[in-house]
Every structure is written in structure tokens, then in C-alpha cells.
Simulated assay, not measured.
Amino acid sequence: MVRREAITGKNQGSVIIMYKDINHLVRMDLNLLPILDTLLNEKSVSKTADKLNVTPPAISKSLNKIRDTFQDQLLVRSGMSLELTPLAVRLKPQLRELLDNIQNVLHQNIEMNGSELPRSFNIVTNDILMSKLSYKLMKKSIQENTNHVFNFNYDNASTCMLRSEDIDLYIGEDKTLSPEVKIRTIGHSDCVFIAKKDHPVLQMEKSLKVLKEYMLIVSKNKLKEEMESLYRERGYKRKIHGVSAGYLPMIENVIQTNSLGIVPMYVVDGLQRMNLEVEFFKPQFELPKVRIIQAWHPRYHNCSSHKWLRDISKDLLEF
């Protein structure tokens, strides 16, 4: 049987678990540690299974092995949910630190290709970048024979979304995020106007004085603030009539009405591949550029598989 001895140091909250039967611990399958880490965070067998892309019975079987190793239930039923035992509460931060340290040790001198650490990645981005990146990631995954799963989610405009352990990476236009987040610029994109192919403005001069007479739709990002500032500087009242959560709804609005849209050039590249009934043009004044970024929470900064995702997605987007 494994005996536990808690030794409390000068810091009252710091508890080190010492195992008298060290041979029993050494025989523990280290593959169980990431499962335990996820279980302690999710406090749910089904959510852990979903996150790790395995079946709930497989997680239950692993949990029984973990309980046997630690001689503790670790998670106990409380009504409709699972709660951590006192030992599990103490283990949780230590286990997270241990896994981070293992990652660092393993990858100081070894360049990983990402396939050795299969994960399910949750990526937040906009609709155009999603269509541009998703098939390329799939092709790359097949090419490298990885077991990664890529789950794409729409940007919900939350500044704190990366604090959630459900989100691994944000890829998109510059936006306000929580202060601890890591940010990397992966490119810039010029902006242009778009209009439906038979729009009368296409035959007119492209001055702000002319363009301001038409309804304008922009995306929900810093571009909206910059365009409003531009109107004010030229002495015009606000002319932004719509703010779209995504580019495809904006484009549909432009096609169905006489409104104009402002989009980055990377959006135009996507539209041309789709053969949509829109034209783009540059105005006779300077539009702001958009910065394209990757953003992630510091807890993933030294994770090798996450580094692989960041580097691969940056290269595939080709900004």
C-alpha cells in the first residue's frame, strides 16, 4: 500500500506529498498524468473524454488506475457534479507545474514536429480566416500523420476568452484582450471598400465626400473605431450603419443592398476564390491597415504542441 506523508514548509499553503513506496509510484503510467490534470480541471469524466478525444469509459478506467496509485478517490460525487478531495486540491497546482516542467525538459534540445503530442486544439478566429486556415491545417495534419484535432470557433468579441481553458489560440485582427495574454503579430493587411458589381459608386470618384452618402458596414473590431475617427476628422457625421460580427454576413448585406463595406485585402482574396458578386476598390484617401495577430494564454507558452500549432498556422496563413 502507498503511504502518504504531508510535509508543510514555511509557507502554510505549500504541501509536498512524499511516497514511502517509491517503487509503486515509479511504476505509474506517466500517460495518466495529463488525464489526471484534465480531470482535476474539468471535474467531469465526459468533459475530459471530449477534450482528450477519447471515450468516457476509457477515462473512467484511467481514473480507477489513478485512484489506486494515490490511494485516494481524488474526485467524489456531490449531487450532479464531481468535487475534488483535499488531496486532489493540493495535487492540482503541483501536477500542472510538473507537466509544464516535463514539457520544458523534453524540448530543450529536441525539435518536435507536433505529431508526438496529440491534442485537441480549440481555435477562435473569424469566418474568412477559418475557411483559409482549416483545410490547410487538415492537409498538413495528414501530411505529417498527426493525431491532432482542430476545433474552430467564431470570435465572440470577449476580451477574456483566452482565460478559459477551452480556448487554445486566437487568430485574427488586433483586438483588446486581457493583459496577461501573449500576442504575436503575424502580418498586416491593407483595407479596401467593397460593393456589389452593379453599384453606381463604381462609376464615380472615390472621395470621402461621395462615399459618405452611402450606408457603410464594418466588422466588429478596431476598424470601426478608426473609421468613425476618420469621419470626425473630416467634419462628417457618423455614417456607419451596420457592424457585422463576421465578414460573410457583411458581404451578403452588400450584395443585397446599396451599402458599402470595408474589409482587409485578405478577405478580398477569399471572395475572389468564391466568385461572389462583389467588386473592391481603393478610395482616394488612406484607409487604416489591420494587424493580424495570434494570442494565447501564458499557460500554453512553453507547450511544444502549442508552439507547433502557432508556427504552423502562421506559416500556412502566409501574411
Results as ranks from 00 to 15, higher is better:
46 S>H: 06
70 F>S: 09
66 I>P: 01
45 V>I: 15
68 D>E: 13
50 D>E: 13
36 L>N: 08
47 K>D: 11
65 K>F: 02
48 T>S: 15
59 I>G: 01
33 L>S: 08
67 R>D: 08
43 K>Q: 15
64 N>V: 13
58 A>M: 05
55 T>R: 13
41 N>K: 14
35 I>T: 15
44 S>K: 06
54 V>S: 00
30 L>K: 13
63 L>T: 10
37 D>V: 10
67 R>K: 11
32 L>K: 07
37 D>R: 13
46 S>A: 15
65 K>A: 07
48 T>M: 06
64 N>E: 14
71 Q>Y: 00
62 S>F: 00
60 S>K: 12
55 T>C: 08
36 L>D: 12
42 E>H: 12
39 L>Q: 03
58 A>F: 10
43 K>F: 06
41 N>T: 13
67 R>M: 06
49 A>S: 11
47 K>A: 07
46 S>F: 10
51 K>I: 04
61 K>M: 14
62 S>Y: 06
33 L>K: 03
51 K>L: 12
49 A>C: 02
59 I>Y: 09
71 Q>A: 08
51 K>T: 00
51 K>Y: 01
64 N>T: 13
38 T>S: 14
63 L>Y: 01
60 S>C: 09
42 E>S: 13
48 T>P: 02
68 D>H: 11
69 T>H: 10
62 S>V: 04
49 A>Q: 06
53 N>W: 12
42 E>P: 03
